[in-house]
Every structure is written in C-alpha cells, then in structure tokens.
C-alpha cells in the first residue's frame, strides 16, 4: 500500500494524449496544475477550482473529469486526454473544433477547452444527440461570452458531419 508523504514530490507517470509522460507532484497537487505547471500543457484552463465552471474538464480513462477535483497522484498509470489531443495534426482542426470556428462557438476562449472535451467525449458515445441533450451536457460548463447558442449549433453540426459516412474514417477525434 503506497503512502505518499505530504511534503515530498513523488514521481508520476501516465499517458497524455497517447504519449507517456512523467513528472513530480506533492499529494495535494491538482491534476490541472500538474498538466499546466509540471508538463507545460496549458490548454487545460483553471477557472473556479471547485468543479462548477467546467473549464478544466479533461478525460481520464474515458471518464469526463474535472482536473481541479482530481489529484495528480490519482491518475498515476491512467490514460489522460486533453484539448491538445483533439486536432489530428498541426494546422488541422478536428470536426468539432472546425464547427466551433464556423459558428463562433467561442469568443474569449477560456471555457472552450473544457467544453470541447465534454462534447468530444459525449459525441463518441452519443452520435445522434438532441438539442436538449447537448443543453443538458453544457449545464456542466459556464461560458460568459457566447450565450451558448453558437456552441449548441456547432455541436449539432459536428454531430451531423460525423454521422455522414465519408467523414468517419478520417478522424480519430470527433
């Protein structure tokens, strides 16, 4: 039974967007801070630090996860996915990201990484969502710029694009 002492920094390893990463964390370090400060993966944003705003939402072993409500030491050995892993290659957006751009689904962009992660995960398991389902999913996020309407349009369009057969094999992420 491992006991990690409070004042020491402990070696941590997990997979980030498919690649093995390692760093050091005190037990109290949030996953969000580990991603940003230890690994330099600053795509994940930190807003409220108590699970309300949703900006820090990532995926851990396929589960949507608030990175501020998760300790770095809890994800040792896990498969972590963040917004940096969405684009299929540099210079090319995922279907969902492209839909956000077309529909102005972001303005300041602070909430966007979390919302993209939620929608990416949700559309993988719910390929034909209703507008109400998207709205309910978005209740786990706060956006103060857009009023949500363009985000909902982008999500529904991305779902429609992904449902068309020609698009599917091309994209790892939605």
């Amino acid at each position: 039974m491992p006991r990690l002492t409070a004042t020491k920094r402990h070696a941590m390893r997990f997979r980030l967007n498919g690649h093995p990463v390692e760093g050091h964390a005190e037990p109290r370090m949030q996953l969000a801070d580990f991603l940003r400060h230890e690994l330099g993966a600053t795509g994940t944003h930190v807003g409220c630090e108590h699970g309300i705003c949703g900006a820090c939402t990532v995926s851990v072993d396929g589960m949507l996860t608030r990175a501020c409500l998760t300790l770095a030491v809890q994800v040792d050995g896990c498969d972590v996915r963040t917004v940096e892993g969405l684009a299929p290659e540099p210079g090319r957006l995922s279907v969902l990201q492209a839909a956000f751009r077309r529909h102005h689904g972001l303005q300041c962009g602070f909430c966007t990484p979390g919302i993209l992660m939620s929608l990416d995960r949700y559309l993988q398991t719910n390929p034909n969502p209703t507008e109400n389902q998207i709205r309910e999913l978005l209740s786990g996020h706060l956006c103060r710029c857009t009023g949500y309407t363009p985000i909902i349009r982008a999500a529904l369009e991305a779902a429609a694009v992904l449902a068309s057969p020609t698009q599917q094999e091309d994209h790892v992420h939605v």
Partner: peptide, 12 residues
Amino acid sequence: MKPALFDYVRAE
C-alpha cells in the same frame, strides 16, 4: 485555492 498538505494513501 489549493489544498493544504496531506499524505496520500492508495489503499488496495
């Protein structure tokens, strides 16, 4: 805010 110091035990 950030948590205060604590030890972490991963019980198996």
